[in-house]
Design a protein around this nucleic acid. Structure first.
Lengths: 101, 101
DNA sequence: GATGTTTATTAAAATAAGTTAATATTTGTT
DNA sequence: AACAAATATTAACTTATTTTAATAAACATC
C-alpha cells in the first residue's frame, strides 16, 4: 500500500472534518458527553446541568442535529435530544480515553 | 458516579476541544494522517503529496506546532515535521476506524 | 556575494463560527 | 382565549479561522 492510497479523498476528508468540528467545542463536547452517557435529555435539563444559556444551547443542538449527529423528539412541551450518529459513541469514548493519557 | 462527576471541568473541556480543533480541518487532518502513517516529512513533500499551497500548508503546520501537536527540526534547507503529541496517534487511529463504520 | 531552494512571516481579505438579545412558535393549563 | 413553560428562530454583533499574496529569512551552491 502506497502513501496515496491511505489518504482519504477530499469529500471524505471534508465530511470527517465536519463531524469532528461538532466535538471540537467545549459546549458541544459536553453536550455530547452528557447524551452519550446519560441517554436522551430535554433541552432544559441540558441547560441546567451545563449551566448554559437556553438560546446558545439550542443553537449548538441544532448545529449537531443538522450534521446528523443528534436527533430530537418533541414530547409535549419538551424536546428530547439524543445521539443519532452511532459512530459518535465510539469516537467520544476514544477521545475520552486518549485525552486521559 | 453521578452525572456531574463524569463531566470535565471547563479548562479540561477547553483543552480537549482545542486539540480536537487541530484534527477538525481537511488539510490538518490529512497532514496528521500523513505524519502518523509515514513518520517525519519535509514541508515540501507534504505540499506535494497533499497538493496544497506552500504558504497555506506552512500556516497549518505552525498552527499544530503551536498547540504542541507537531514538532519540527531543520536539516539544511529543509524542515522536517513530525508528531509530537503521542496521544494524537491513538486519537487518529480511533478517528479513522470510527469514521470507517 | 549573487542566485536558487525551502520555509516562515506578515498583512490583508474573505469566510465562518460563536454569542447575545429579542421575539416567535409550540404545547399545556386555567 | 389568556397565560405560562419550553424551545426555536432571527438578526445583529463579535470574534476567530482560513485563505491568499507578497515578502523575508535561512541555508546551499556556484
Amino acid at each position: 500500500m502506497n502513501t496515496a492510497s491511505k489518504l482519504l479523498g477530499i469529500s471524505e476528508l471534508e465530511q470527517t472534518a465536519s463531524i469532528l468540528k461538532s466535538v471540537a467545542h467545549p459546549i458541544r463536547l459536553s453536550i455530547l458527553q452528557l447524551l452519550v452517557h446519560e441517554g436522551r435529555m430535554s433541552v432544559n435539563s441540558i441547560c441546567e446541568i451545563l449551566q448554559s444559556e437556553q438560546s446558545l444551547t439550542s443553537h449548538h443542538l441544532s448545529n449537531m442535529k443538522l450534521k446528523g449527529v443528534l436527533e430530537s423528539k418533541r414530547e409535549g412541551q419538551k424536546v428530547y435530544y439524543s445521539l443519532k450518529m452511532e459512530k459518535m459513541r465510539n469516537l467520544l469514548e476514544c477521545i475520552e480515553s486518549c485525552m486521559g493519557q
